[in-house]
């Protein structure tokens, strides 16, 4: 028996969420007294054996190139390995890809499925684990009634831990299937930091008055190596792309640091960002609800505060 973890790669490279998932699988496997097996799919640019540094004992590389839009093909291939390895627990990062394949895998394996998991299991028989619920407004302790379980992990909920371990690597040919969905074109913004995985997020709202004022937001983000986000009305009016909309009805983010500029802090906005470890708010209105939820705040005009903040961070970076 082993704990199986899907080691997602994107353009052949492992993602931060992959290392979180392998760490999680290793810690859970240790508790259960079993080994950790990682599965990769398709061509890798990264060295598969490096997953040993995060606790994988074995890496099985599925050699078939399966497009990520073929959730059925990916989940079928992982299911083959899960059955071969006799895995009763499968861990998957709740990324765009993970969200699509994990529920399918659960159906294939006749397993229970728990998503948005934020902690290691509090009990292993029956299997009990804490997950996010109500879009960040609460947590739920969920229990799995089946002897098999698929867990999808919330991004940025676990610290990546490096171990001195090493992993054996083997290759595997999964059965070939015809995909019911095919990719016809991919449009990618290069160099953009993935919002879900970003350590720091700089976010701005309607207080910025217009799309022409986002230069300072992008400058601050670039300086900090941060992802950029926005409130819902800002994406609805078309000042920023929908992909940046965070909150209860947009993306949920949980970075180390969330900087909110000219955002009032409506309950729907806070729901999607309040898992951030540290929150900073910059707002002219001392009554803005965001001040009740933030850790640090400046009451002031963003058009004065943000340029000064950029200067100070530049000074700080020069000296550190």
């Amino acid at each position: 028996m082993s704990v199986l973890v899907f080691a997602e790669s994107w353009d052949g490279k492992f993602k931060k969420g992959t290392f979180e998932a392998v760490t999680y699988a290793h810690e859970t496997a240790k508790k259960l007294g079993v080994s950790t097996t990682a599965v990769t799919i398709g061509k890798l640019a990264d060295d598969a054996a490096q997953l040993g540094n995060y606790g994988a004992d074995k890496v099985i590389c599925i050699s078939n190139n399966i497009n990520t839009c073929d959730s059925q093909g990916m989940s079928a291939a992982i299911a083959e390995i899960a059955n071969k390895e006799g895995a009763s627990l499968v861990i998957i990062a709740n990324s765009n890809t993970g969200k699509t394949i994990a529920p399918r895998l659960a159906v294939k394996l006749s397993a229970g499925f728990i998503s948005n998991v934020v902690d290691t299991p509090s009990n292993d028989t029956p299997f009990t684990v804490k997950k996010k619920a109500f879009s960040g407004k609460a947590f739920e302790n969920a229990q799995c009634n089946n002897d098999k379980c698929v867990l999808a992990l919330a991004p940025n909920a676990f610290h990546i831990v490096e171990t001195a371990g090493s992993a054996t690597v083997e290759s595997f040919d999964a059965a070939n299937r015809v995909s019911k969905v095919t990719s016809t074109n991919v449009e990618k913004a290069t160099g953009k930091i993935s919002l879900a995985e970003a350590e720091i997020v700089v976010s701005a709202g309607r207080g910025l008055k217009g799309p022409e004022n986002w230069g300072m937001v992008e400058e601050l983000a670039e300086l900090l190596g941060a992802g950029t986000a926005c409130s819902k009305p800002v994406s609805d009016i078309g000042w920023r792309p929908h992909a940046e909309h965070v909150g209860q009805t947009g993306k949920a983010v949980a970075p180390n640091l969330y900087i909110a500029i000219g955002i009032s802090g409506a309950i729907q906005h806070l729901a999607g960002v309040n898992s951030s470890k540290v929150m900073v708010v910059i707002n002219t209105d001392p009554e803005a609800p965001f001040f009740k939820s933030a850790d640090y705040g400046i009451i002031g005009d963003a058009f004065e505060v943000v340029p000064r903040l950029i200067e100070e961070i530049r000074n700080f970076k020069a000296n550190n």
Partner: peptide
């Protein structure tokens, strides 16, 4: 296949500095 055992709310933050 799964059942909710209990719910909890996120910890309150200390006041804003």
């Amino acid at each position: 296949r799964t059942v909710s055992i209990s719910f909890e709310k996120p910890a309150e933050r200390a006041s804003c500095k």
